[in-house]
Amino acid sequence: MTLTFVMMEAPFENARTVSVLRLIDAAIRRRHDVTVFAYEGAVAMTFARQAPHANAVHGRTAEEEDHPLPKDWVAGLMTAAQQRGVKLEWINCGLCVDERGVAEAIPGAKRGSPADLWKASEASDNTLVIGTR
């Protein structure tokens, strides 16, 4: 099966981002091909300059904190897809990238447009939009 997911939520603001990653992860584990169209704030999910930090409240160094960064989770999903022989295509809405200044994305994240979303949707068995509030 081929699935398209649209996500809008920016990282670190809401549980929706993690919920979408759970769904993508589940789809990949079940060997479905997945296209993700990241729209609006979600284009920051793959921003390459996200950086981990220590946690002084819990007394942990940066290494001990092992802070999960969204870009690393997305990269992990890309690796998992590759290992399972399925496709994970990550498309960031280009205009959204520009206005947010997050053009430096991890390898594998592409720049696209609404036309790419429509094409992906047409080529998919189903499309799930998880918007934002």
Partner: peptide, 28 residues
Amino acid sequence: VTSAYRCNSEEQDDPVVWICQAMKGAGA
């Protein structure tokens, strides 16, 4: 479309209304 006026000032659009126009232009 379920929420309104969320970021219209910054985007100068509603993002969902906008993307629907764009997808229509792409043949949707």
